Amino acid sequence: MTEPVRLSKRMSELGLCSRREADEWIERGWVRVDGIIVSELGSKVLPHQRITVERQAAAQQAKRVTVLINKPVGYVSGQAEDGYKPAVTLITADTRWKEDRAPTEFHPSQLRSLVPAGRLDIDSVGLLVLTQDGRIAKQLIGDDTSIEKEYLVRVQYSKPGRLPDADLKRLNHGLSLDGKKLLPAKVRWLNDDQLSFVLREGKKRQIRRMCEAVGLKVLGLKRVRIGRVMLGDLPPGQWRYLRPDEQF
């Protein structure tokens, strides 16, 4: 017999919302199980039971914004640390990209519950996603995500000559970090000192540690793509909204 699971967990598994959103909707009486409103937190359901949400929940979710920033060096992705500012402090009316064509109007209330969906190191630059939408966060950083992230990486080889082809193959599929084998990557030379990395995971300082393992020193790292969403011409330190027609 299948074990019951928490309603909020099941809603997240179905891609309806994040667990936090689910708990909020349950408390507000916006969730039905087999047509009956369930408003008690911690309620459990069986996998075959039908879960629906009221229109108010969908309307609230539609108002949630997702922001794309071209993060410069010196900003942390999440909470402030060691005196460094978080990337969310870059989001003001003045720093919105003038060419942003999204119809959304900026309001400071959008900064509430705006969290990074993935991270960029303090000394890395490029595309960073901040979102209020639990579905997007789960899509980008959930355990089962398969969304590619592409980086341009400027490197310096610590030995004479060029990186051997065998080591390039190891970067593609053959390295382990912290005792765990990495997922296959797509790594190729763009020119004499720049590599393209395409990853489907994001361990802490992963690219820098991968490069160290084959004798490469990273001089610069820039994320240029997450799934189908490109950094494009977004200037450093500026931001824009994810448009309704864009999907990762």
Rank of each mutant, 00 (worst) to 15 (best):
D167H: 07
I141K: 05
L140I: 12
E105S: 14
A166I: 11
A166C: 08
I122R: 10
K159H: 14
G126H: 09
P184M: 02
R170G: 00
S158G: 10
I141T: 12
Y151T: 07
E105K: 14
Q110P: 02
K138I: 13
P116V: 11
E148I: 15
D144I: 10
K138T: 14
V115N: 09
T131S: 15
S109L: 02
W97Y: 13
T131G: 11
D165V: 11
D167F: 13
A185R: 01
L168F: 06
V155G: 00
P184S: 04
N172P: 04
L182F: 11
K98R: 13
L127A: 00
H107G: 08
V153R: 00
S124R: 08
Q139A: 15
Y157Q: 04
E150L: 13
Y157N: 01
P108I: 15
V125T: 05
Y151H: 10
K138A: 15
G134S: 12
G118F: 08
G126I: 07
R112I: 14
Q132R: 04
S146P: 09
D167Y: 11
D144E: 01
L183V: 01
H173M: 02
R101M: 07
K169A: 09
T145L: 12
L182A: 06
E105C: 09
S124A: 09
G161F: 14
N172T: 03
D100Y: 08
V125H: 05
G126Q: 04
P184C: 03
Q132M: 02
L177K: 05
D100H: 03
N172C: 07
E105H: 14
L127H: 01
R135W: 13
L183S: 00
G118R: 11
S176C: 08
S124P: 12
A185T: 02
R135L: 15
P116I: 11
R162N: 15
I141F: 03
T131A: 10
L168E: 03
P160R: 14
L128F: 07
A102N: 06
R154G: 05
R112E: 06
L140H: 12
F106I: 14
Y151D: 03
G142Q: 07
L163A: 11
D144M: 08
L130D: 09
R154E: 03
D133H: 14
L171C: 06
L128V: 05
V115F: 14
L111D: 09
W97D: 11
L177W: 05
E150N: 10
L152V: 11
R135F: 13
L177G: 09
A185N: 00
K98A: 14
Q132P: 04
Q156N: 03
E105P: 12
D133L: 14
K169P: 06
Q156D: 00
L120S: 08
Q110W: 04
A185W: 01
D144R: 13
S113C: 04
D100K: 07
P160S: 15
D167C: 05
D178K: 12
E105G: 07
K98T: 09
T145V: 10
L171R: 05
H107Y: 07
P164F: 12
H107I: 09
P164Q: 08
D165G: 12
L152D: 04
L175R: 01
S146R: 15
G161L: 15
D144T: 13
R135Y: 12
Q110M: 07
L182R: 09
